[in-house]
Design a protein around this nucleic acid. Structure first.
Lengths: 336, 336
DNA sequence: TTGATACACTTAAGCGCTAACGTAAAAAAC
DNA sequence: GTTTTTTACGTTAGCGCTTAAGTGTATCAA
């Protein structure tokens, strides 16, 4: 089959261990031998068998990533830049999608662990309330992405979701809106925190929030547009309908805008919208959408960097990395 | 560390091989023993170490996928449904992104192969003209996705790109357009075939195609909108500007429409557009976009099924699977 | 001269698993 | 009742690599 360490060693008249060490840059190999090895390795196009290396060394040089939905632009962009950061260090990415189903998520985590991944990255779809036991028991260090668990002492890379809620809401307040509603999720930490930021911004401005102005739903990733559409209909049914809505993500904002337009409202004159995620197509929508950018690329880079650290040194005190959001203003919130 | 085969065997007073066989459902294990093994395996939460299994058996139960761009909706959707199909059979997906760079693609293929993947799926970004040697020499069976190579005797799962070109063009002819242009790519097989279908449909209808009505570009995945925008400006500069454009994909169509709108044209009255890919957001665009649906989900399923076959039996005659496209008509091509 | 100290390698062992073959007992065949 | 077959296991060897523990030789201090 393929070229093995043994073949290189035989050809060179040295032991396999010498070749192995030379390849990995260990110090106890002579300059001349090292060069001979490297030269032949290149000539024979040798690639170490990572399964064997992983079995022998306990390190697989691969990280696992579980996301709720690959198609969601945020996770796509995140995965892309993560993969780029890992590739630079010769690490592979094993990807799994949970389809927003906790049972699938658990199963995927198990199979990733069985593959000896060095670090487990998870954007969990399980409720933020308590830390899942399988993550707590993981043999590989765990790096939570985007979604955190309550009291979790786990490593985390994600957005500052409270700031997202504040930034979006302050913008709506800033353009003079008084009846500001929120279409959000429940259960996951980003939903909770964005709502918290939303409320914080409102009360800081002395604006009261009717209970009915907060509509929460599930499943924002896959079919967020219809989720947003129906949630918006609920808001439009209020006696005093809102004049601005902060939506959990862009997809739900798209659906919500659709509902508003169908109801004959003008955007942004009658009602303004802010989404979150800064979708690639936000500029090209019927009404270009104001959105909070989560810097998914930079999150991917940060996660890659942290994952590499954890792979090298698994037993570190947990760290939390939060990136600040940035508001991108478009037509949906300013008369243009 | 984790529970090993040996631990189960010791506990049960049998050999490791017996446990291994029972676990994999081999015939030469007694009913009673099998049950005892399975029971204890469940109790002790044993998961086979896939690195060891892979090393010993030569099968890793993982497939590798290289795509040009994870963020591109087509590949995202494809990867999602592929992963689903594989998961059902206990196969993992190792994902790599080539960033549309042939050198990165080659490197990623090497690292995937070094990981002992059972099947290599590649949506290659290398020119269709000739079959790359690394794919020809691959130790794992190769399954080409979306893009084919000339005279390639390799397995393939993708769209019927000629039909895509025909369907789109016939539609534009059907709505009475006479000056039909194409913004397309070059090099990759889908570009070539879509152009072929485009020309075929035109000549079947007896419509002549000015040379300048075919504009080809590169890089349609990542920044297709600006590619489409600039290509469209070129078309608009013609003495006789087109009254319809078939664009390589939706992203370029979005950019092209943007350019047309900026030029003061009405869509579809003055100029109609058809894209390809049937983007999730096609309905919500400024002008909802008529697009050819590639059935990316079904492609993913088909690829998963074929990959499983190839994993079980690598030496099969190559098969080509092409899914028929379907036109989704929206505002960009009919006055609505 | 002796011993310590590097240096540049080799030998031995084993990671956790499976393929291939071996074997003993029970069942079936003659 | 002996041979053959079948059933249900066990033994051996090894996948390709790495870690840990040597081994021999040159170098240097005492």
């Amino acid at each position: 089959m393929a070229v093995r360490l043994k073949d290189i060693a035989r050809e060179l008249g040295v032991s396999t261990v010498t070749v192995s060490k030379a390849l990995r840059g260990r110090a106890d190999i002579g300059q001349e031998t090292r060069e001979r090895v490297l030269k032949l390795v290149a000539e024979m196009d040798y690639r170490p068998n990572m399964l064997a290396r992983g079995l022998a060394s306990g390190r697989s040089y691969a990280v696992g990533l579980v996301v709720p939905d690959l198609v969601h632009p945020f996770f796509g962009e995140f995965a892309r830049s993560l993969a780029g950061g890992l590739r630079a260090e010769g690490m592979a990415l094993i990807l799994a999608s949970s389809e927003d189903d906790p049972a699938i998520e658990q199963q995927e985590i198990r199979t990733l662990l069985a593959r000896g991944i060095d670090v487990l990255l998870v954007a969990s779809c399980r409720p933020a309330a308590d830390f899942p036991s399988d993550l707590a028991d993981s043999t590989a260090p765990v790096l939570l992405i985007d979604r955190q668990f309550a009291g979790g002492r786990a490593d985390f890379v994600g957005s500052d979701d409270i700031a997202i809620g504040e930034v979006a809401t302050r913008h709506l307040i800033g353009i003079g809106r008084k009846r500001i509603a929120h279409i959000g999720g429940h259960g996951m930490s980003p939903s909770l925190d964005r709502l918290k930021g939303f409320k914080r911004a409102l009360s800081a401005a002395g604006i009261t929030l009717p209970k009915a102005y907060v509509v929460t739903r599930e499943r924002f990733e896959e079919s967020g547009d219809s989720t947003g559409y129906h949630a918006m209909q609920e808001l439009l049914a209020q006696k005093k309908r809102p004049d601005a809505v902060f939506c959990y993500n862009d997809l739900s904002a798209i659906g919500a805008m659709e509902a508003a337009l169908q109801a004959g409202l003008r955007i942004p004159e009658d009602i303004a919208f802010v989404g979150c995620g800064n979708l690639r197509y936000a500029d090209y929508l019927r009404i270009p959408l104001t959105s909070v950018d989560q810097a998914s690329e930079r999150l991917g880079e940060a996660a890659a960097a942290r994952a590499l650290e954890l792979a090298d040194e698994p037993d570190q005190p947990a760290r939390t990395i939060r990136l600040e959001p940035r508001l991108i203003v478009r037509r949906s919130s300013v008369v243009g």
